[in-house]
């Protein structure tokens, strides 16, 4: 191993483990010992720890608001100190960092009194994924009319659409989107929960410049899940009806279509254009 590699390996180890820092004290030197080496090394150690805690706070701001900054930072520290190869980021960009923070919170004993917290974290992660997600031109009603003209009415029933690439689907037994909404900057954090708000089905998409956190009906959610699973349009309509018989599945589909939820599969797009 080269000298530089050996030094950096030691330095890296001491960043994570203060006891290991003693090795560093023998390596570093500034020629003037007014300020102890440990204090200097601590700047880097502190930078790494606090910058990653800050990163978690930036990724999970609603969770932080729900539990308070002090609690959140303590929890974040436990998360970052966990013995896992993924405890530190595996890439320089922090986009997508800490995908399992919600899973960590499930088992985090001090947060037990907030059973909805992990699902709020899941929603925040979903928001983050969509915020950075890839762009696509959603299919419109006009596009589908053109498809019918080319291929006939029957073909529409057999058409397999895709969801827009930047999307997330979530279910929760808690009103997490209401909690999330009420804890956005400028909101007072108060949530009034009706019984029908309790179980939530959420579709996170970005039709315009803003990420949209949508509560959708059981039928709409079933429709979206069916499309995501590769079902034909006809099958997706049936799935929507089975889940929510009080709504016309065609209107469920129309609403989702107009909201820019779908794209044509590449093969269809190519033959049409």
């Amino acid at each position: 191993m080269s000298q530089l590699a050996e030094l950096q390996r030691t330095f890296a180890a001491s960043l994570r483990d203060p006891a290991n820092g003693q090795v560093m004290l023998d390596l570093a030197s500034i020629g003037n010992e007014q300020l102890p080496h440990r204090a200097r090394m601590d700047v880097y150690r502190n930078n790494v720890a606090s910058s990653l805690i800050d990163a978690l706070a930036a990724l999970y701001p609603v969770c932080q608001r729900l539990v308070g900054e002090e609690f959140f930072r303590a929890a974040a520290k436990v998360y970052l100190d966990r013995p896992s190869p993924d405890a530190l980021p595996r890439q320089a960009s922090l986009i997508g960092f800490a995908p399992d923070f919600a899973g960590f919170l499930v088992g985090f004993e001090p947060a037990r009194s907030l059973p909805y917290l992990p699902d709020v974290a899941r929603l925040e992660h979903a928001w983050h994924r969509v915020y950075h997600g890839s762009e696509a031109e959603p299919v419109t009603a006009t596009d589908l009319q053109a498809y019918v003209q080319t291929h006939g009415e029957q073909a529409l029933d057999q058409l397999v659409l895709d969801l827009v690439p930047a999307h997330q689907l979530l279910m929760s037994p808690y009103p997490v989107s209401r909690i999330w909404q009420a804890n956005q900057p400028g909101q007072d954090g108060q949530v009034t929960i009706a019984e029908e708000d309790r179980n939530e089905r959420i579709f996170v998409v970005q039709p315009q410049a803003q990420v949209d956190v949508r509560r959708v009906s059981p039928g709409a959610f079933a429709f979206l899940c069916a499309v995501k699973g590769g079902a034909t349009l006809g099958r997706a309509l049936i799935a929507a009806f089975e889940e929510e018989q009080t709504r016309d599945p065609q209107s469920v589909f129309a609403e989702l279509l107009n909201a820019g939820s779908f794209v044509l599969p590449t093969t269809v797009g190519e033959t049409n254009s």
Partner: peptide, 22 residues
């Protein structure tokens, strides 16, 4: 202690009103 590193930049954007890029 603060330092020169970066945090994911997205949270502040949530405070912006929705809609198209003006």
């Amino acid at each position: 202690m603060s330092r020169m590193t970066h945090s994911p930049e997205m949270y502040s954007a949530r405070t912006q009103a929705g809609g198209r890029i003006p």
